[in-house]
């Protein structure tokens, strides 16, 4: 029962972070939310008994995807325009 509750809370965290990715206009903040999303997603995979996938998500999602998003933001610009 407690595990189910834990599960639900993690899913709530996933949804919150996903929503904040949508919400933030500052791309850097959105990238940070995306990193948090990836972290929680890895935990969720872990809960669903998929450790292989969890490692892949932790390694690729949390480390590398954040890195390349940051690089891309560096290569373009950080804020969304007000009209977009």
């Amino acid at each position: 029962m407690m595990l189910v509750l834990f599960h639900l809370l993690i899913l709530a965290g996933l949804i919150i972070t996903a929503a904040s990715v949508v919400y933030f206009r500052d791309l850097l903040a959105a990238a940070i939310s995306l990193a948090a999303f990836s972290l929680l997603l890895a935990l969720e995979f872990y809960l669903l008994q998929a450790p292989d996938v969890a490692i892949a998500e932790a390694g690729i999602g949390a480390g590398l995807t954040t890195a390349i998003y940051i690089i891309a933001i560096r290569g373009t610009k950080r804020k969304e325009d007000p009209d977009e």
Binding site: D52, I55, A56, G59, L64
Partner: peptide, 10 residues
């Protein structure tokens, strides 16, 4: 758990 992809990614 792990394998080529995960280790390579690490």
């Amino acid at each position: 758990p792990g394998g080529g992809f995960q280790g390579g990614a690490v």
